[in-house]
Design a protein around this nucleic acid. Structure first.
Lengths: 116, 116
DNA sequence: TTCAAAAGAAACGCTTGCGTAACGGTCCGT
DNA sequence: ACGGACCGTTACGCAAGCGTTTCTTTTGAA
């Protein structure tokens, strides 16, 4: 059961969610960081720097830096892979799950407010 | 007729749209810039720096800088208000309308792809 | 055992956004 | 006509992200 949106609803939803997120959340993650965060939490693990870089279509340092930032915020965690110690496995955190849960609620709330 | 979303659909939609936007669009507007852009195009004019700052809950220089950036990209335009020459009225552009139209299409497309 | 390849991080210089504070132009009541 | 209030911009020092390049560790095959 897909989500059917009119053009007005689509942009209106993005508008009100962005607006509310700007007003409420001081963190102001970039679009890239948000895409990485959602990828980590919505797609089955394991996640690696290399894999995320390929999925996003960006270079590896972009992922490393984003993980630095979001790690400092407690939204993700990094653990060395013992199978292949060159790899780093990105782990979810309770804070990260909570953050996205609240963000999901925001989207749902704003979706309900879209007219037409 | 509001938009009813499950938690999975809400985050999934944001996920796939962000991902596609990162892959396709090199501009990478910040969340603030996107919120400003949508405010300008979805809410009836006139728009001023002061008004946008109040709506977004940010300071005026934030708006000025965002307008600098998006102006250079051709997404918005600025015109002095002849009624009160202290004011600057923010104008929409053809390029900006086109940009948001494509973005809206992206949201609609990704919405259709959300399961459940 | 040796060595090229791979993964992630760190280093480099640059660009862009931030918050605060100060500034120049404009309006309007006195 | 003067002075305060208002509007948007600019200046300043700082923090964070970017792309490219280099480095370190680890792996696996010759």
């Amino acid at each position: 059961m897909p989500v059917e949106l009119t053009p007005s609803q689509a942009l209106g939803l993005w508008h009100t969610v962005s607006l509310e997120q700007v007003r409420v959340d001081g963190r102001d993650l970039t679009l890239r960081q948000m895409a990485i965060l959602l990828q980590i939490y919505l797609v089955p693990p394991p996640h690696t720097v290399r894999g995320l870089a390929a999925t996003l279509g960006v270079t590896k340092p972009v992922i490393t830096r984003a993980l630095d930032t979001m790690g400092a915020l407690g939204l993700v965690d990094r653990v060395r892979d013992d199978r292949d110690r060159r790899n780093v496995v990105i782990k979810r955190t309770v804070d990260g799950a909570l953050y996205l849960e609240k963000f999901g609620d925001l989207i749902i709330d704003q979706g309900r407010k879209q007219p037409k």
